[in-house]
Design a protein around this nucleic acid. Sequence first.
RNA 1: GCCGCAUUCGUCUAGAGGCCUAGGACACCGCCCUCUCAAGGCGGAGAUCACCGGUUCGAAUCCGGUAUGCGGUACCA
Length: 499
Amino acid sequence: MTDRVRIAPSPTGPLHIGTARTALYNYLHARHVGGTFILRLEDTDQVRSTVEFEKDILDGLHWLGLDWDEGPEVAGEPARGPHAPYRQMERLPTYAAAAQQLLAEDLAYPCYCTPEELEADRRAQEAAKQPPRYVGRCAKLTIDERRAREAEGRRGVLRFRVGEGIVAFDDIVRGRVEIDVANLGGDFVIVRADGTPLYHFTVVVDDAAMEVTDVIRGEDHLSNTPKHILLFRALGHAVPRFAHLPLILNPDRTKMSKRKSQTAIDDYIAQGFIKEALVNYLALLGWSTGTEEEILSLDELVDRFDVRNVHKGGAVFDRERLEWLNGQWIRRLPPDELIDRMRPFVEAELAAGRIERMPSDEELRALLPVIQERLPTLGAIGDLVGFLWVTDLDVDPAALVPKRWDAATAREGLAAARDTIAGIGDVSFEADELEPPLRGLAEEGGWKAGDLFMAIRVAVTGRTATPPLFDTLVALGRQRVLDRLDRALAVLDREEDST
RNA sequence: GCCGCAUUCGUCUAGAGGCCUAGGACACCGCCCUCUCAAGGCGGAGAUCACCGGUUCGAAUCCGGUAUGCGGUACCA
């Protein structure tokens, strides 16, 4: 049988970095071995699950390019795959049947303990320095006793009998793991009093029903795996293989969390990280090719991926490295592609009022040679060249005066530069045509070219760090360059008056 | 507390008994390039391979213990 793997997110929050990586590893495995990648929504936590989160997760996975072979119906699109539905709240009858089966075979039993009773048990165990576990008060209730509770109007939960013994399994990444059933905390609840099933139960029923062969998931489920194995056996199903992935960590090495790190994929998208970089980075967080290759596309990753090489230790999420990879991938984007991906970020600048007009695609294309290698993220576009799309520039008078110069020199230099530039015709307004005369001017004035250029740069852009000056002048256009130089001169004059 | 898992430069990692005076990358520092900023090139600093014992002619690699960290221990997933 070919491998069947799945990603089973819970729509209780936006797509999380950790979920994205788990999805990626499952996807890479499926594609590498020619297996099937299934998406299943685990929405049994009705209190926290929302359709908005569900959409967010699906959109995020699509954005990353992780397309599934089998999954739920979404927005009119019918469900794909032979085991629909793929949304747990639509599979309630399946769980009810499985629960009925366990109950009939006495592998599970109704428990009528109240929250108060359970809380008291827990407290007593704590006081006695015992590990918390269900004491089994309802484990041996007779049929009559059960009826009596029901008659009192009590609604029981369903508990699974864990029995005793050692549960062992060979985890693909961790090797052999053995856990004594005695440490599982006693018979655990598989169906709530309101009849809805719990995670440990649904995950097993579904993995069995969907014929999942390899469960590739986060390490936080490692300790729960014996419960799953017991359930698979009780239900009479084959136990799948397990591969527990190392956790992604906060800088303090605790499990990555919203409190301490940015965990939503959305946020990275909004900042201008591109999917190629995110996929590449996530793939290498906890796995490596074993070679020194590190810039890898999704296809190249598929080609090289092997779950058996996944690491055991957790990995700290390093944003700096992600940014570096992002820059690498931005530089590899074809021009049209870059423009398409950049446009929303320029639009966002416009919407935020940081620029005043939307540049055309031609304008953006002309800029590409000087900005492509200067963008660590797409969101940096406004910061880099936003000065091109505003009418009035705020210029700090102090910045107009290069370090080695005084105000008078700056005034003189800028005035001379204005004349020189004014003398260059519109048709000749190209980088190659601008540089020689301005260098000549610096020489005549006895200035260092760098100082003159810096004064001009600040005058026309308002910044000390910009793309190359002459390309920048061309992008601004002759008239705007002259206007801004005039304004800068006026600013310098005003400063002089006020001192 | 109990159970489980983990531990190589600050970070991501290479490493499957001799090729390791531990390699690469990010970040950091310096130099080159250069009109600034990037990008790129070159170089540097940075790891007693958590610790202690053992096995072996030889251990980052095998075994045992200790420590530390993390995860699990819900009518969350």
